[in-house]
Protein backbone atom coordinates (compact mmCIF):
# COMPACT_ATOMS: atom_id res chain seq x y z
CA UNK A 1 0.00 0.00 0.00
CA UNK A 2 1.30 3.37 -0.97
CA UNK A 3 0.38 5.08 2.26
CA UNK A 4 3.46 7.13 2.68
CA UNK A 5 3.42 8.62 -0.77
CA UNK A 6 -0.10 9.89 -0.52
CA UNK A 7 0.26 10.97 3.02
CA UNK A 8 0.59 14.68 2.48
CA UNK A 9 -1.94 15.69 5.02
CA UNK A 10 0.07 15.94 8.19
CA UNK A 11 -1.12 19.45 8.67
CA UNK A 12 -4.78 19.15 7.72
CA UNK A 13 -7.23 20.07 10.43
CA UNK A 14 -8.33 16.88 12.11
CA UNK A 15 -12.03 17.55 11.98
CA UNK A 16 -12.48 18.53 8.45
CA UNK A 17 -16.00 17.74 7.42
CA UNK A 18 -15.19 18.22 3.78
CA UNK A 19 -12.84 15.30 3.98
CA UNK A 20 -15.49 12.66 4.23
CA UNK A 21 -16.94 11.56 0.93
CA UNK A 22 -19.60 8.90 0.71
CA UNK A 23 -18.86 6.48 -2.06
CA UNK A 24 -21.85 4.18 -1.80
CA UNK A 25 -21.05 0.98 -3.60
CA UNK A 26 -18.50 2.48 -5.96
CA UNK A 27 -15.37 1.31 -4.34
CA UNK A 28 -12.95 0.12 -6.90
CA UNK A 29 -9.32 0.02 -5.89
CA UNK A 30 -9.74 1.01 -2.27
CA UNK A 31 -6.71 1.52 -0.07
CA UNK A 32 -7.96 -0.01 3.17
CA UNK A 33 -10.50 -2.55 4.30
CA UNK A 34 -12.44 -1.65 7.44
CA UNK A 35 -14.67 -4.11 9.30
CA UNK A 36 -17.58 -3.07 11.48
CA UNK A 37 -17.94 -5.52 14.33
CA UNK A 38 -19.94 -5.39 17.51
CA UNK A 39 -22.68 -6.92 19.59
CA UNK A 40 -26.14 -7.15 18.03
CA UNK A 41 -28.25 -4.01 18.03
CA UNK A 42 -25.46 -1.56 18.79
CA UNK A 43 -25.92 0.51 15.64
CA UNK A 44 -23.34 -1.00 13.27
CA UNK A 45 -25.60 -0.73 10.29
CA UNK A 46 -26.52 2.82 11.21
CA UNK A 47 -22.84 3.76 11.32
CA UNK A 48 -22.34 1.95 8.04
CA UNK A 49 -25.17 3.86 6.39
CA UNK A 50 -23.86 7.14 7.67
CA UNK A 51 -20.37 6.60 6.36
CA UNK A 52 -21.26 5.12 2.99
CA UNK A 53 -24.57 6.80 2.27
CA UNK A 54 -26.16 3.40 1.68
CA UNK A 55 -29.39 2.12 3.15
CA UNK A 56 -28.73 -1.08 5.05
CA UNK A 57 -31.59 -2.26 7.17
CA UNK A 58 -31.54 -1.19 10.76
CA UNK A 59 -33.97 -1.99 13.49
CA UNK A 60 -34.30 -2.12 17.24
CA UNK A 61 -34.08 -5.86 17.38
CA UNK A 62 -30.94 -7.94 17.72
CA UNK A 63 -30.02 -9.93 14.64
CA UNK A 64 -31.13 -7.51 11.96
CA UNK A 65 -28.13 -7.94 9.71
CA UNK A 66 -27.36 -11.53 8.79
CA UNK A 67 -24.99 -11.33 5.87
CA UNK A 68 -22.20 -8.95 5.35
CA UNK A 69 -22.67 -5.80 3.32
CA UNK A 70 -19.99 -3.68 1.73
CA UNK A 71 -19.74 -0.05 0.86
CA UNK A 72 -17.11 2.62 0.51
CA UNK A 73 -16.11 6.05 1.67
CA UNK A 74 -13.26 8.37 1.03
CA UNK A 75 -11.40 10.28 3.70
CA UNK A 76 -8.36 12.50 3.30
CA UNK A 77 -7.90 11.21 -0.20
CA UNK A 78 -7.89 7.55 0.81
CA UNK A 79 -10.53 5.11 -0.22
CA UNK A 80 -11.88 2.80 2.45
CA UNK A 81 -13.95 -0.29 1.90
CA UNK A 82 -16.36 -0.69 4.79
CA UNK A 83 -17.82 -4.08 5.65
CA UNK A 84 -20.94 -4.25 7.84
CA UNK A 85 -21.02 -7.52 9.77
CA UNK A 86 -23.82 -9.29 11.61
CA UNK A 87 -23.80 -8.69 15.34
CA UNK A 88 -21.93 -11.21 17.47
CA UNK A 89 -21.72 -11.72 21.18
CA UNK A 90 -18.48 -13.60 21.05
CA UNK A 91 -15.82 -14.85 18.66
CA UNK A 92 -15.03 -17.84 20.81
CA UNK A 93 -18.02 -20.04 20.33
CA UNK A 94 -18.37 -22.47 17.48
CA UNK A 95 -21.94 -21.56 16.66
CA UNK A 96 -22.61 -21.15 12.97
CA UNK A 97 -24.84 -18.10 13.17
CA UNK A 98 -21.83 -16.04 14.13
CA UNK A 99 -19.60 -17.53 11.49
CA UNK A 100 -19.78 -14.68 9.01
CA UNK A 101 -18.46 -12.10 11.41
CA UNK A 102 -15.96 -14.42 13.04
CA UNK A 103 -14.43 -15.55 9.77
CA UNK A 104 -14.17 -12.07 8.40
CA UNK A 105 -12.39 -10.65 11.41
CA UNK A 106 -10.08 -13.66 11.61
CA UNK A 107 -9.35 -14.38 8.00
CA UNK A 108 -10.55 -11.37 6.05
CA UNK A 109 -7.65 -9.50 7.64
CA UNK A 110 -9.24 -6.06 7.68
CA UNK A 111 -6.77 -3.19 7.96
CA UNK A 112 -8.85 -1.69 10.73
CA UNK A 113 -11.60 -3.24 12.81
CA UNK A 114 -14.14 -0.78 14.16
CA UNK A 115 -15.88 -2.20 17.18
CA UNK A 116 -19.24 -0.56 17.71
CA UNK A 117 -20.40 -0.73 21.30
CA UNK A 118 -23.48 0.40 23.16
CA UNK A 119 -22.37 3.09 25.60
CA UNK A 120 -25.24 2.25 27.93
CA UNK A 121 -24.01 -1.32 28.39
CA UNK A 122 -20.30 -0.99 28.07
CA UNK A 123 -19.34 -3.83 30.37
CA UNK A 124 -21.33 -6.41 28.44
CA UNK A 125 -19.96 -5.15 25.14
CA UNK A 126 -16.36 -5.22 26.34
CA UNK A 127 -16.48 -8.99 26.22
CA UNK A 128 -16.34 -8.88 22.44
CA UNK A 129 -13.99 -5.91 22.38
CA UNK A 130 -11.40 -7.78 24.42
CA UNK A 131 -11.68 -10.76 22.12
CA UNK A 132 -11.19 -8.65 19.02
CA UNK A 133 -8.17 -7.02 20.61
CA UNK A 134 -6.60 -10.44 21.02
CA UNK A 135 -6.75 -10.96 17.28
CA UNK A 136 -5.82 -7.63 15.85
CA UNK A 137 -3.81 -4.69 17.00
CA UNK A 138 -5.48 -2.22 14.70
CA UNK A 139 -8.87 -1.35 16.06
CA UNK A 140 -11.06 1.64 16.83
CA UNK A 141 -13.77 1.66 19.47
CA UNK A 142 -16.93 3.42 18.37
CA UNK A 143 -18.74 4.32 21.58
CA UNK A 144 -22.16 4.54 20.00
CA UNK A 145 -25.57 5.47 21.39
CA UNK A 146 -23.87 8.12 23.45
CA UNK A 147 -27.10 10.16 23.25
CA UNK A 148 -28.95 7.30 24.93
CA UNK A 149 -26.27 7.13 27.59
CA UNK A 150 -26.68 10.82 28.26
CA UNK A 151 -30.41 10.45 28.41
CA UNK A 152 -29.99 7.83 31.09
CA UNK A 153 -27.29 9.87 32.81
CA UNK A 154 -24.57 7.32 32.23
CA UNK A 155 -21.16 8.88 31.82
CA UNK A 156 -18.29 7.18 30.04
CA UNK A 157 -14.79 8.57 30.38
CA UNK A 158 -13.54 7.91 26.89
CA UNK A 159 -9.95 8.95 27.62
CA UNK A 160 -9.63 6.51 30.47
CA UNK A 161 -11.18 3.84 28.30
CA UNK A 162 -8.86 4.60 25.44
CA UNK A 163 -5.89 4.43 27.77
CA UNK A 164 -7.00 1.12 29.22
CA UNK A 165 -7.78 -0.50 25.90
CA UNK A 166 -4.91 1.02 23.98
CA UNK A 167 -7.02 2.02 20.97
CA UNK A 168 -8.84 5.21 19.94
CA UNK A 169 -12.28 5.59 21.51
CA UNK A 170 -14.75 7.81 19.65
CA UNK A 171 -18.12 8.68 21.19
CA UNK A 172 -20.82 8.78 18.51
CA UNK A 173 -24.55 8.99 18.12
CA UNK A 174 -24.90 7.38 14.74
CA UNK A 175 -28.55 8.07 14.51
CA UNK A 176 -28.00 11.80 14.94
CA UNK A 177 -24.96 11.56 12.69
CA UNK A 178 -22.69 13.01 15.35
CA UNK A 179 -19.10 11.89 15.74
CA UNK A 180 -18.91 10.39 12.27
CA UNK A 181 -16.11 12.63 11.15
CA UNK A 182 -14.02 11.92 14.20
CA UNK A 183 -14.66 8.26 13.62
CA UNK A 184 -13.45 8.38 10.03
CA UNK A 185 -10.43 10.30 11.18
CA UNK A 186 -9.61 7.70 13.79
CA UNK A 187 -10.02 4.96 11.19
CA UNK A 188 -7.71 6.86 8.90
CA UNK A 189 -5.10 7.38 11.59
CA UNK A 190 -5.04 3.76 12.62
CA UNK A 191 -5.03 2.55 9.03
CA UNK A 192 -2.20 4.78 8.01
CA UNK A 193 -0.17 3.93 11.07
CA UNK A 194 -0.29 7.41 12.56
CA UNK A 195 -1.90 6.05 15.64
CA UNK A 196 -0.17 2.98 16.97
CA UNK A 197 -2.49 0.81 19.04
CA UNK A 198 -1.31 -0.97 22.15
CA UNK A 199 -4.23 -3.31 22.62
CA UNK A 200 -5.18 -4.62 26.03
CA UNK A 201 -4.67 -8.35 26.41
CA UNK A 202 -6.87 -10.58 28.49
CA UNK A 203 -5.47 -11.57 31.87
CA UNK A 204 -6.66 -14.51 33.84
CA UNK A 205 -6.29 -15.47 37.46
CA UNK A 206 -7.03 -19.10 36.82
CA UNK A 207 -3.73 -20.98 37.06
CA UNK A 208 -4.56 -23.92 34.82
CA UNK A 209 -5.74 -21.60 32.11
CA UNK A 210 -2.65 -19.45 32.28
CA UNK A 211 -0.43 -22.46 32.26
CA UNK A 212 -2.14 -23.93 29.21
CA UNK A 213 -2.13 -20.66 27.27
CA UNK A 214 1.50 -19.86 28.08
CA UNK A 215 2.81 -23.33 27.33
CA UNK A 216 1.02 -23.52 24.03
CA UNK A 217 1.93 -19.97 23.04
CA UNK A 218 5.57 -20.70 23.67
CA UNK A 219 5.44 -23.77 21.50
CA UNK A 220 3.73 -21.88 18.70
CA UNK A 221 6.26 -19.05 18.74
CA UNK A 222 9.03 -21.58 18.52
CA UNK A 223 7.62 -23.05 15.36
CA UNK A 224 6.18 -19.87 13.91
CA UNK A 225 8.34 -17.00 15.14
CA UNK A 226 6.71 -14.55 12.73
CA UNK A 227 3.14 -14.92 14.02
CA UNK A 228 2.06 -11.94 16.12
CA UNK A 229 -1.20 -12.97 17.75
CA UNK A 230 0.16 -16.19 19.22
CA UNK A 231 -2.05 -16.05 22.28
CA UNK A 232 -5.16 -15.94 20.17
CA UNK A 233 -4.00 -18.91 18.13
CA UNK A 234 -3.36 -20.76 21.37
CA UNK A 235 -6.83 -19.90 22.65
CA UNK A 236 -8.43 -21.13 19.47
CA UNK A 237 -6.46 -24.35 19.51
CA UNK A 238 -7.55 -24.97 23.06
CA UNK A 239 -11.13 -24.46 21.89
CA UNK A 240 -10.56 -26.91 19.06
CA UNK A 241 -11.16 -24.53 16.16
CA UNK A 242 -10.73 -26.55 13.00
CA UNK A 243 -9.72 -23.70 10.72
CA UNK A 244 -6.80 -22.85 12.99
CA UNK A 245 -5.86 -26.51 13.30
CA UNK A 246 -5.81 -26.73 9.52
CA UNK A 247 -3.68 -23.61 9.31
CA UNK A 248 -1.19 -25.07 11.77
CA UNK A 249 -1.13 -28.39 9.96
CA UNK A 250 -0.55 -26.99 6.51
CA UNK A 251 2.01 -24.48 7.71
CA UNK A 252 -0.19 -21.63 6.49
CA UNK A 253 -0.21 -20.06 9.91
CA UNK A 254 2.84 -18.00 9.05
CA UNK A 255 1.07 -16.63 6.02
CA UNK A 256 -2.42 -16.38 7.42
CA UNK A 257 -3.05 -13.29 5.33
CA UNK A 258 -3.40 -15.45 2.29
CA UNK A 259 -5.83 -18.03 3.52
CA UNK A 260 -8.70 -15.70 2.91
CA UNK A 261 -11.33 -18.09 3.95
CA UNK A 262 -14.15 -18.70 1.52
CA UNK A 263 -16.65 -16.11 2.67
CA UNK A 264 -19.74 -15.85 0.50
CA UNK A 265 -19.23 -12.77 -1.55
CA UNK A 266 -22.78 -11.61 -1.15
CA UNK A 267 -21.92 -7.99 -1.13
CA UNK A 268 -24.69 -5.51 -0.74
CA UNK A 269 -27.67 -7.50 0.27
CA UNK A 270 -30.47 -5.35 -1.02
CA UNK A 271 -32.69 -8.26 -0.33
CA UNK A 272 -35.98 -7.93 1.42
CA UNK A 273 -35.25 -7.66 5.10
CA UNK A 274 -38.44 -7.31 7.01
Amino acid sequence: MNVMMKDNCETCPVHNLGNLKKLGINMNDFDFVVALAGNPNTGKSTVFNNLTGLKQHTGNWPGKTVTRAEGGFEYNGFKFKLVDLPGTYSLLSTSTDEEVARDFILFGQPDVTVIVVDATRLERNLNLVLQVLEITDRAVLCLNLIDEAERHKIKVDERQLSKDLGIPVIPTAARLKTGMDKLSNAIYEVASGKYVCKPYRIKTKIKELNYAIETLSKKISEVYPQVTNVRWIALRLLEGDQSIIDAVKSGDLGTIKEIKHEIDGQSLETELTA
Binding site: N127, L130, D164
Partner: peptide, 18 residues
Protein backbone atom coordinates in the same frame (compact mmCIF):
# COMPACT_ATOMS: atom_id res chain seq x y z
CA UNK B 1 -13.31 -20.43 32.59
CA UNK B 2 -12.11 -18.33 29.72
CA UNK B 3 -15.43 -16.53 29.42
CA UNK B 4 -15.43 -15.93 33.15
CA UNK B 5 -11.97 -14.38 32.94
CA UNK B 6 -12.88 -12.16 30.03
CA UNK B 7 -15.95 -10.84 31.79
CA UNK B 8 -13.86 -10.24 34.88
CA UNK B 9 -11.46 -8.13 32.81
CA UNK B 10 -14.38 -6.33 31.22
CA UNK B 11 -15.87 -5.50 34.58
CA UNK B 12 -12.60 -4.06 35.81
CA UNK B 13 -12.15 -1.88 32.75
CA UNK B 14 -15.76 -0.73 32.72
CA UNK B 15 -15.62 0.17 36.40
CA UNK B 16 -12.76 2.55 35.71
CA UNK B 17 -14.50 4.56 33.03
CA UNK B 18 -18.25 4.29 33.48
Amino acid sequence: KLMESIYENAATIAARSV
